[in-house]
Design a protein around this nucleic acid. Structure first.
Lengths: 340, 340
DNA sequence: AAGGGACGGGCATACGTATTCACTGTTTCA
DNA sequence: TGAAACAGTGAATACGTATGCCCGTCCCTT
C-alpha cells in the first residue's frame, strides 16, 4: 500500500474516466446504476474517501459549520455557560446527520474573528453562542450579515434580522415561573436580572414576569427589580442590595440559575430560609440546580431541540432557503425551592 | 468589490509573481523584507486570507486537529463528563495559539470514525476523550496508530504505546486523598470504583489508595473495595452494597466525584451523617462538588494544563518530534466532607 | 580577474476533485 | 421517417496555493 487512492485510481480499476467516478460517488443520476455500483464497490474495497480539501476547493463550499463561543475577555477560568455546553452534543449530532463537519472555537468578544472564517473559507456558516452584552458585538454581526456570511445566534427571537436568531420562549417561561410563585401565594416577587436592552433574553424574561403580575392583578413595583447579569456573585449582590434598600419580598424570580444560586447563598448568609421566608425560581435548569439545598425550581430549555434548531436554521440560510423562526417552548420544573 | 481576492490579485498589485506572494505571507526568508512588507500591506487592505482548502490541498496538511468525544451508545441524554468539557476551553485555545483549527465530533464507541478523519484528510491528528471501557476501543486505536494516524488520548499514562496517552497522576492523587482521610483519624476507608484493568485510571487511583494504607501500616481489606463505574447511581448502589454486606467503615474514597455524590445520596438515605459518621473524598473537582451538602473534598485535576498537554503532545506527534510524557500533577482540595 | 556563494524572485507544475461542454448511440414523438 | 430529446460518458479545464528548479545580480574571496 503506497499512497492513498484517488478518484483516478478508481476510474482506472473500473474502466471509466475520473469524472464518472466523481459523479457516481456523489449521486449524480446521469450515471448508469450498474456503473455506479461497480465504482462504489471498488471505492469501498480501497477505503477510498473523497479528499475534503480538493473537493472544497473545487466546489467552493467547505461542508463545514463553525461554532463560536464568546467569552468575556476578563473572565479567567474559561467558564462557559453550562447550558451552551449541553447544546454541544445535539449540535454535533445535527451537523453529522447533515453531513457537515463542525469547527469549534472560543473567541474573545473583541477579536478579529469576523474576518477569519469568512475570508479563509473555513466554514459555510457560523453559529454564535454566548450571552453577554449584545451591543458589544452587534456591529460585527451586522457587518457579517451585510457581507453575506451566514450566521445564526442563540438569543432573543425577534432581535436583529429575521431568522438569524434562534431562542427560547423567554417571555413565556418568565410568565410561567412568576405565575407559579403567585399560585403558591407569594405576592412580593423580586426579579433579579437585567431589564434593559443590553441583554434581550433577560429582558424578555422580565416581560413575562410583568405579564404574570398583571394577569393576576398585582401591581409592578420597580423597587423589586434588581440588575444582575448572569453570575452567582451578581445574584448574591442583588439580595444584599434588596436588604440594604429595605425592600420586603417573599419570593424571587431569578433570570438565570446562576443568579438564583448566588441569591440562595446570600439568603443563607442573611439567615432567611428557602422556601419558608423566600420562595425562589430560576431559569435554565443547569445541572447544579438539582444539587442546591433545597433543589431549585427552574425553567428548563430543551438543549437538544435548541441545538437542532440552530443547525437547521443555519443550514437553511446556507442553502438560501426560507427560514421560519418560532421561539422554542420552555417548561417549568418544580422542585422544593418554590414551596413544598 | 466582486469575488474575494486571491494571491494573484495581490501579486499584480505588488508587481511581483504569485509565488512570491505565497512565500512572503508564509514567512519564507528568501523574500526581501521590503517586498514582504509591501505584500503584507496590500493583503491587509484587501482583507485577504489564504484559502484554507487550496493551501491544504497543495501542502497536504489540513492544519486542523480533531477532537472526538466518546459516548456510550446507550446513554441517552448525551451527558459528557464535565471534566472533559472543562478541558474544551484550553484545548481550543492551545489549538488557536498553534495556528490549528479544531474539528469536534461526538462518536459512538462502535462507529466507523477511525476511517473518516484518516481517509478524507480532514485532520492531521486526533484527540480522543472519553472514559469508558478501554478494551472496547483498544483494537481500533491500535489499528489507527499502525496506519500512522496521529492520535492522543486522555487516560492512564503508561497504557498503550508510549506518548500516545496523556493523563493525571492518578496514583499520586489517590494516595493523597487516602492519606488525608488517615490523617483525619479514619481507619476503615472504603474504595468506590473499578479496581481492574478495564478502567486503567480508576485502577491507578486504587493503587494510590493501597499505597497510602500500606504507608500508614494499615491492612488492605478487600471487603472495602466496591466496583462502581463513574456515575451517581453507581455510587449510591455501592453504599447500599456495603450496607447489605454488613461492612463497617468510617470513610469513603470515591474514584470520581459523580460516584461520591451518589454515595452521599445513599448515605443520607441511610441516615448516616457526613462527615460525622462517614468522611468522604472524591476525585475530579467537577463544579457540582462545591454545591453538595457538605461541600465535597476532592482531588482536582488541572483541566487547563491537561488540555494544553494534549495539544502539545499531539502536535509533537504530528511533526514527528520526540514526545515526553509525564503524568500531570493533581492537588487535594479540602472541603467539609472529609471532616471539619 | 575569475570563481563561488548568497540573495531575491520568476516559471512551471502539482495537489485531487467537480463541472461544463461536446459527443455518441438510443429512444420518442410528430 | 426525420428530428428532437435523452441517457451515458469522456476531454478539458478550473479551483487557489505551495514548492522544486532555475536564473540573474551582487559581493566577497583568493
Amino acid at each position: 500500500m503506497g499512497r492513498r487512492p484517488t478518484s483516478f485510481d478508481i476510474a482506472q480499476l473500473a474502466g471509466v474516466s475520473q469524472p464518472t467516478v466523481s459523479r457516481a460517488l456523489r449521486g449524480s443520476k446521469s450515471v448508469n446504476p450498474q456503473t455506479r455500483q461497480r465504482i462504489e464497490a471498488i471505492a469501498r474495497s480501497l477505503h477510498y474517501a473523497v479528499d475534503k480539501h480538493a473537493s472544497s476547493l473545487r466546489s467552493q463550499s467547505a461542508n463545514t459549520l463553525a461554532l463560536l463561543f464568546f467569552e468575556e475577555p476578563a473572565e479567567d477560568d474559561s467558564t462557559i455557560n453550562p447550558f451552551f455546553l449541553s447544546m454541544l452534543g445535539s449540535i454535533t449530532h445535527a451537523c453529522a446527520r447533515a453531513g457537515y463537519d463542525l469547527l469549534i472555537s472560543f473567541q474573545q468578544l473583541s477579536g478579529d474573528w469576523h474576518v477569519d472564517y469568512q475570508d479563509s473559507r473555513k466554514a459555510d456558516g457560523i453559529i454564535l453562542l454566548g450571552y453577554g452584552d449584545y451591543e458589544a458585538y452587534r456591529a460585527r454581526l451586522d457587518h457579517l450579515t451585510e457581507q453575506g456570511t451566514k450566521v445564526v445566534r442563540w438569543g432573543a427571537v425577534g432581535t436583529g434580522p429575521a431568522g438569524i436568531t434562534v431562542g427560547s420562549d423567554n417571555r413565556g417561561g418568565g410568565e410561567a415561573a412568576t405565575a407559579h410563585l403567585i399560585a403558591r401565594g407569594r405576592r412580593r416577587i423580586a426579579f433579579l436580572g437585567a431589564a434593559d436592552g443590553r441583554y434581550p433574553e433577560l429582558e424578555d424574561r422580565y416581560r413575562g414576569y410583568r405579564d404574570a403580575l398583571e394577569a393576576a392583578g398585582l401591581t409592578v413595583d420597580d423597587a423589586l427589580q434588581v440588575d444582575a447579569i448572569t453570575t452567582e456573585d451578581a445574584g448574591q449582590d442583588a439580595v444584599a442590595d434588596l436588604a440594604r434598600r429595605g425592600v420586603e419580598y417573599d419570593a424571587i424570580f431569578a433570570a438565570s440559575d446562576s443568579i438564583a444560586i448566588g441569591a440562595m447563598r446570600g439568603l443563607a448568609a442573611a439567615g432567611r430560609s428557602v422556601p419558608g421566608d423566600v420562595a425562589i425560581v430560576g431559569f435554565d435548569d443547569i445541572a447544579s440546580a438539582q444539587l442546591t439545598n433545597p433543589p431549585l425550581t427552574t425553567v428548563t430549555q430543551d438543549a437538544r431541540r435548541a441545538g437542532e434548531a440552530l443547525v437547521r436554521t443555519l443550514l437553511a440560510r446556507v442553502r438560501d432557503e426560507a427560514v421560519e423562526s418560532a421561539p422554542l417552548p420552555t417548561r417549568l420544573v418544580i422542585r422544593a425551592s418554590s414551596g413544598a
